[in-house]
Deep mutational scan, measured.
Amino acid sequence: DEEIEKWIETLLKRNISLRVNGKDLEIGSEEFKEWVEKFIKEV
């Protein structure tokens, strides 16, 4: 979905790490990609 890709790009540009389930996810890491894929499937 384009919306999500733009959102991810924005996050990448800002180099933010997300806190997911109490863990810091490094943007661009494998864990982050897995989380994004799960997130996309749920939406």
Results as ranks from 00 to 15, higher is better:
Glu42Lys: 08
Arg19Asp: 03
Ser29Phe: 08
Arg14Met: 15
Glu37Thr: 13
Trp35Ala: 08
Lys33Trp: 15
Ile4Asn: 01
Trp7Asn: 00
Leu18Ala: 01
Ile8Ser: 01
Leu11Asp: 00
Glu42Phe: 14
Asp24Phe: 09
Lys23Met: 09
Thr10Cys: 15
Gly22Gln: 02
Glu2Lys: 13
Ile16Val: 11
Asn15Arg: 01
Leu11Asn: 01
Val43Glu: 04
Lys6Glu: 09
Lys6Met: 08
Ser17His: 09
Trp35Tyr: 07
Asp1Gly: 12
Lys23Trp: 06
Glu26Tyr: 09
Ile27Gln: 04
Leu18Val: 09
Ile8Val: 04
Asn15Ala: 14
Glu37Tyr: 13
Lys33Thr: 06
Gly28Trp: 08
Glu3Ile: 09
Asp24Trp: 12
Arg19Ser: 08
Glu26Arg: 05
Glu34Thr: 09
Arg14Pro: 15
Gly28Cys: 14
Leu25Ala: 02
Ile8Lys: 02
Lys38Arg: 10
Arg14Ile: 15
Ile16Leu: 01
Ile27Glu: 02
Phe32His: 01
Lys13Phe: 09
Arg14Gly: 15
Arg14Val: 14
Glu26Trp: 08
Lys6Gln: 09
Ser29Asp: 03
Arg14Leu: 15
Val36Lys: 02
Lys23Ala: 06
Gly22Tyr: 05
Asn21Ser: 05
Ile8Thr: 02
Glu3Trp: 15
Lys38Trp: 11
Arg14Thr: 15
Ile8His: 00
Arg19Tyr: 07
Leu18Cys: 10
Phe39Arg: 03
Ile27Cys: 05
Ile40Pro: 00
Gly28Lys: 04
Asn21Gln: 06
Leu12Glu: 07
Gly22Ser: 02
Trp35Ser: 00
Val36Trp: 06
Thr10Pro: 00
Gly28Leu: 06
Gly22Met: 05
Lys38His: 08
Leu11Arg: 00
Glu2Pro: 09
Glu37Val: 12
Ile27Gly: 03
Leu18Glu: 01
Trp7Asp: 00
Ser29Pro: 05
Glu26Asp: 12
Phe39Lys: 03
Asn21Thr: 01
Val43Ser: 09
Glu26Asn: 06
Ile16Cys: 15
Phe32Ser: 01
Glu37Trp: 11
Val20Gln: 06
Glu5Phe: 13
Glu26Lys: 10
Arg14Asn: 15
Lys6Val: 05
Glu5Asp: 13
Ile4Ser: 03
Arg14Trp: 15
Asn21Gly: 02
Leu12Gln: 03
Lys41Trp: 04
Lys33Gly: 03
Gly28Ile: 04
Ser17Asn: 05
Asp1Thr: 13
Glu5Tyr: 14
Trp35Pro: 00
Lys38Glu: 05
Lys23Gln: 05
Thr10Arg: 11
Trp7Met: 06
Lys6Thr: 08
Phe39Pro: 00
Trp7Lys: 02
Asn21Lys: 06
Val20Trp: 05
Phe39Cys: 10
Trp35Asn: 00
Glu42Thr: 10
Glu5Leu: 14
Val43Cys: 15
Glu42Arg: 10
Trp7Ser: 01
Glu42Ile: 13
Lys13Cys: 15
Trp7Leu: 06
Ile4Phe: 08
Asp1Ala: 13
Glu3Ser: 11
Val20Lys: 03
Thr10Leu: 12
Asp24Tyr: 12
Arg19Ile: 10
Val20Ala: 05
Leu25Lys: 01
Glu42Gln: 10
Thr10Asp: 13
Phe39Tyr: 09
Leu25Gln: 02
Ser29Ala: 06
Glu37Ala: 14
Glu26Gln: 11
Ile27Ala: 04
Asn21Ala: 02
Ile8Ala: 03
Ile4Met: 08
Ser29Val: 07
Asp1Trp: 15
Lys41Ile: 04
Glu5Ile: 14
Glu34Ser: 09
Thr10Tyr: 15
Phe39Asn: 02
Ile40Asn: 00
Leu12Asn: 05
Thr10Ile: 14
Leu25Pro: 02
Ile40Thr: 02
Ile40His: 02
Trp7Pro: 00
Glu5Trp: 15
Ser17Asp: 03
Glu26Met: 09
Ile16Gln: 12
Glu26Ala: 09
Val20Pro: 02
Lys13Ile: 14
Phe32Glu: 00
Glu2Gly: 08
Leu18Asn: 01
Asp1Pro: 09
Ile4Asp: 03
Arg19Asn: 07
Glu30Lys: 13
Asn21Ile: 02
Glu37Lys: 11
Glu9Ser: 07
Lys38Leu: 08
Arg19Thr: 10
Leu11Cys: 07
Glu5Thr: 11
Lys13His: 08
Glu26Thr: 06
Leu12Arg: 03
Val36Pro: 00
Val36Arg: 02
Lys6Ser: 11
Thr10Trp: 15
Leu11Gly: 00
Glu30Thr: 12
Val20Thr: 04
Thr10Val: 10
Phe32Ala: 02
Ile40Gln: 02
Lys33Val: 07
Leu18Gln: 00
Lys38Ser: 07
Arg19Ala: 10
Ser17Trp: 12
Val36Glu: 00
Asp1Phe: 12
Glu34Asn: 12
Glu5Pro: 06
Phe39Met: 09
Glu30Ile: 12
Glu37Ile: 14
Phe32Lys: 00
Lys23Phe: 05
Phe39Val: 08
Val36Tyr: 05
Lys13Glu: 12
Trp35Glu: 02
Glu2Gln: 13
Asn21Asp: 08
Thr10His: 14
Gly28Pro: 07
Trp35Leu: 05
Ile40Asp: 00
Asp24Glu: 12
Leu25Gly: 06
Glu3Thr: 11
Glu2Cys: 15
Leu18Met: 03
Ile8Trp: 10
Trp35Asp: 00
Asp24Lys: 14
Glu34Lys: 13
Phe39Glu: 01
Ile40Ala: 04
Leu11Thr: 01
Glu31Phe: 08
Lys33Gln: 07
Asn15Leu: 15
Glu5Cys: 11
Lys13Met: 09
Asn15Trp: 13
Leu25Tyr: 06
Asn15Cys: 15
Lys23Tyr: 12
Lys6Leu: 06
Lys41Val: 03
Asn21Met: 05
Lys23Asp: 03
Lys41Glu: 05
Arg14Cys: 15
Lys33Met: 13
Glu31Asp: 06
Val43Trp: 15
Glu31Met: 13
Glu5Ala: 15
Phe32Asn: 00
Glu3Asp: 13
Glu30Ala: 13
Asp24Asn: 11
Ser29Tyr: 04
Glu34Arg: 14
Leu25Glu: 01
Glu9Lys: 07
Asp24Ser: 06
Lys23Pro: 01
Glu42Trp: 15
Leu11Pro: 00
Glu31Ser: 07
Glu34Pro: 01
